[in-house]
Amino acid sequence: MSRFPSSSTMALYSGLAAVAFALAGQPAQAHGLAYGGIGSGFLHPLAGLDHLLLLIGVGAASAAMSSTLLVWALAGAVAGGVFGAMGGSLPFGELLAALAITAVAGSILWAETKGYGSRLSLWGGLVAAAVAVHAMLHGLEAPSDQTSLSWWLGALAGSVLVSGTTLLVLRRLPRSVTTRLAQVLAIGGGLVAFAPLALLLR
């Protein structure tokens, strides 16, 4: 019997370490007015842990169920981004954005146990709604000057890179890795959602 961990176990440990490092190294929600062009836009979705975890979750859901979920995510991004850029917002938007991570992770776990079958449109709608909430926050922050278009293109490129890479990597690993990652994301979403409350109660 080998004394070395399997590749799937190593991948899981690496993912957990990355999440732990991110939790320790950056704020849970890095939202504020955004400036700059394509480079700033590219980095913006990665600057807040809530956005980063959601992008990973979308990639994981696409790997677990269907790559068409990326199309649903894109639709949600466009709708939410336009809504936010026009000044639209939702009550408790930050909280909803964090809980969206748990919702997407929960859909993966549900599909693993119950199968997704005809529910693909349901999961697609959930992914689109989750991404729309995050894109709304981006829309509220996005620059409204001449750099706006390049900023949005950069944000789209950064988002596609994270979700697409997650999809491709998980497709090459045992399915159990996706399940474990979904468990981590479900907990991580809850922590990000309620961490500010815990800080207020300290």
Rank of each mutant, 00 (worst) to 15 (best):
T9A: 14
A11P: 02
Y13F: 15
Y13C: 13
S14L: 14
G15L: 07
A17R: 01
A22V: 06
A22Y: 05
A22Q: 11
G25L: 03
G25W: 03
Q26E: 04
Q26K: 08
A28I: 06
A28G: 15
Q29G: 13
A30M: 14
A30V: 07
H31F: 05
H31Q: 07
G32A: 09
L33P: 12
A34D: 07
A34K: 04
A34H: 07
Y35S: 14
I38P: 00
I38A: 08
I38E: 01
I38Y: 00
G39V: 13
G41C: 09
G41H: 08
G41T: 06
F42N: 00
F42G: 03
P45H: 00
L46G: 03
A47D: 05
A47H: 11
G48C: 01
G48T: 02
L49V: 12
L49S: 06
D50P: 05
D50H: 09
D50Y: 09
H51E: 08
L52N: 10
L53P: 02
L55M: 13
L55W: 04
I56Q: 02
G57S: 13
V58E: 03
G59T: 00
G59F: 01
G59S: 04
A60Q: 00
A61G: 02
S62F: 00
A63S: 12
A64G: 00
M65E: 06
M65A: 09
S66L: 07
S66A: 14
S67T: 10
T68F: 10
L69I: 03
L69P: 01
L69G: 04
W72V: 07
A73R: 07
G76H: 01
G76M: 07
G76C: 06
A77V: 10
V78N: 06
V78F: 13
A79D: 03
G80Y: 08
G80W: 08
G81L: 15
G81R: 04
G81V: 01
V82S: 06
V82M: 12
F83Y: 15
G84C: 05
G84S: 05
A85T: 10
A85L: 15
M86G: 15
G88Q: 05
S89Y: 07
S89N: 09
L90A: 11
L90T: 10
A97N: 12
A98E: 05
A98R: 08
L99Q: 10
L99A: 14
I101L: 04
I101T: 05
I101R: 02
T102N: 06
A103S: 06
A103F: 02
A103N: 03
V104T: 10
V104Y: 09
G106R: 10
S107K: 02
S107W: 05
L109S: 04
W110C: 08
A111W: 12
A111Y: 11
A111T: 13
E112C: 07
T113D: 14
Y116Q: 11
Y116F: 15
R119F: 11
W123R: 15
W123Y: 14
G124W: 13
G125V: 12
V127I: 11
V127E: 05
V127P: 00
A128G: 15
